[in-house]
Amino acid sequence: MDLATILQVLDTTVRLATPLLFACLAGLFSERAGIVDIGLEGKMLAAAFLSAAIAAVTGSVWIGLSAGIVGALSMSAIHGLASITFRGNQLISGVAINFLAQGLTVVIAQSWFNQGGRTPALAGGARFHSITLPGAEALREVPVLGPIYYELISGHSILVYVALLCVPLSWWVLQRTRFGLRLRAVGENPAAVDTAGVSVERLRYAAVMICGVLTGFAGAYLATGLQAGFVRDMTAGRGYIALAALIFAKWRPWAALWATLLFGFLQALSLRPDVLEGVLRIDVSSQLLDALPYILTVVILAGFVGRAIPPRAGGEPYVKER
């Protein structure tokens, strides 16, 4: 196998890992604050649809992105209402959000565009295009490093770089700021935050909203960066895979990057059965390849990769004790 093939697979890995990374960091903020979010899938889907629809209508991918974020935020608001204000079951709320997004996107897309639940194909300014980093063209001919810089590091859409920047940013916010300290505290022992005179509800809403913004990016990237438009159920379980990556990463930002890159790599491989067959020298069924990320998710959840301790107050609505 040559360098070009490896670079192609890795390049695809980065692209496919990007929505996972956004979603994983989104889940990280929510779960570190004690709100379990199984509705990442639905938020991404809502954002994917709205960003594609608005980008198609306005011709501007930036307006599309904003609309996508608004869409994911409104789903977050529902989740916040159910799990923070009304202290409902966070899992059920997440499931409801996933179905709501799955149904609404198709119903609205169908009545809006009449294309069988899709949005029109996006082109030009309605899509995120790859950008070439400075010097990439010039260095392209340098052996080994040139192609790596040109193919792998340069040439992605702006959102890929935003996702990567979100990793150190998330770390910094969580570990170095007052907000981060309080956020982590509210996920471990909300009573400690409450008795310190800080509103548990406000903190958790803030976390859930950050989660909304990040899933908004994830969905918008899917529909306007990775692909050129929305198709039904286009998230294809990425929200759940991001959750598995989050557990794998033990709720830490840098580990989340590596975990999502691993899943991205698997997805990239499943697109290139020829590579796998070339390496393994066996016939691999394409269905097995499709199922591979899901199987790995189960393996990771089974804890065969080390035990993960989730935030202690996760999933529990906060009720002042009597």
């Binding site: 170095r176 007052r178 471990e188 009573a191 400690a192 935050v193 409450d194 310190a196």
Partner: peptide, 30 residues
Amino acid sequence: GMVFQHFKLVPNFTVLENVVLGAEDSGLLR
């Protein structure tokens, strides 16, 4: 100030972080 029967501490925080929580001086922790 109140010391509850069941302590209201964040178990995986340091003593310092627990003391500061909610009484921080500014947006940055250091």
